[in-house]
């Protein structure tokens, strides 16, 4: 396995510099596409640098906490995030993220790589898909009313109210998103947004910011399990989280100035390539 890798014997300094640079690009790409840094840093660490996938997962989940907390800080102040929905669904995501983090060690790393590739492909498709707003203020769900999930958010045209639908369906989907997050060390934002946009029919802005708000707590729940198990290695996590956070910060500044719609196809191709690499190497048992 080690012999397949380009860099076989590397000093700590060289490793740190390469990972720092790669993590910066991962954070930049992750924030421009909305995919998050984790889905790109894991292929980089495993495919290019030959790092065991369990270490890569541990490092990635820490970078998820850093980037999601950093951007949640800005969104929460704007008052778009629905904190009640976030807290309510965190019951599902924290339980399932811990569950995912526990079982990940019993699963053959090859299967984890293949699963990772499939989630990556799914995220690329979700990124390209035309978004259709389903939100309305048709207050029909009894559970949504009971848990006070219906809300409003500021827009340039004034405050818009919305009602939440299919709370049970959203909760179940969040449970699945949490398992994926704990199992693969990613934020699984694509699955969370699917649960909120399509199932619970929340407005885009609210669902993206609320999903981001939940990500930190979900990731922290599984990070604790990884930490106890020794999957969080400071030598890898240091360059990964510094690089991803810097890249994501730069990315969010660029995002305000440009419309990355045209770049999205290019990004999707890159992500799909990484996905096939993960699936291919996973099937060959190289990871």
């Amino acid at each position: 396995m080690v012999t397949d890798v380009i860099f076989v014997r590397m000093s700590v300094l060289v490793f740190t510099i390469i990972v720092l640079f790669g993590a910066f690009l991962a954070g930049l790409l992750g924030s421009l596409t909305g995919l998050g840094g984790g889905v790109i840093i894991i292929p980089l660490l495993t495919l290019v640098l030959g790092v065991d996938i369990h270490y890569a997962i541990g490092a990635s989940i820490i970078s998820v906490i850093a980037t999601s907390s950093g951007s949640a800080a800005a969104y929460v102040k704007e008052g778009i995030t629905n904190i009640r929905i976030g807290m309510f669904l965190e019951i599902a995501t924290t339980i399932s993220a811990i569950f995912g983090a526990i079982i990940t060690i019993y699963i053959n790393p090859s299967y984890i790589a293949v699963m990772f590739g499939l989630i990556l492909l799914f995220s690329a498709v979700m990124m390209l898909r035309k978004k259709v707003e389903h939100a309305d203020n048709d207050d029909s769900g009894a559970l949504g009313r009971f848990f006070k999930l219906n809300g409003s958010y500021p827009t340039p045209e004034g405050t818009v109210s919305y009602a939440v639908h299919n709370v049970v369906g959203g909760f179940v989907m969040m449970f699945f998103a949490g398992i994926v997050s704990g199992l693969l060390g990613i934020g699984s934002g694509a699955l969370k947004v699917l649960a909120m946009d399509n199932i619970m029919r929340m407005p885009f802005k609210v669902s993206t910011t609320t999903s981001n708000f939940m990500m930190g707590v979900t990731a922290a729940a599984s990070a604790v399990v990884y930490l106890h198990r020794g999957q969080i290695d400071p030598g890898i996590v240091m360059p990964v989280c510094v690089g991803v956070l810097t890249g994501a910060t730069v990315g969010s500044k660029i995002l305000v100035k440009t419309k990355p719609e045209k770049l999205k196809v290019l990004f999707a191709v890159v992500v799909a390539f990484l996905a096939f690499q993960m699936i291919y190497n996973g099937m060959l048992g190289k990871l």
Binding site: V5, R9, F15, V51, D52
Partner: peptide, 9 residues
């Protein structure tokens, strides 16, 4: 200057 080895968890 130490050599890294993360190939096996």
């Amino acid at each position: 200057k130490a050599i890294v080895d993360y190939s096996q968890f």
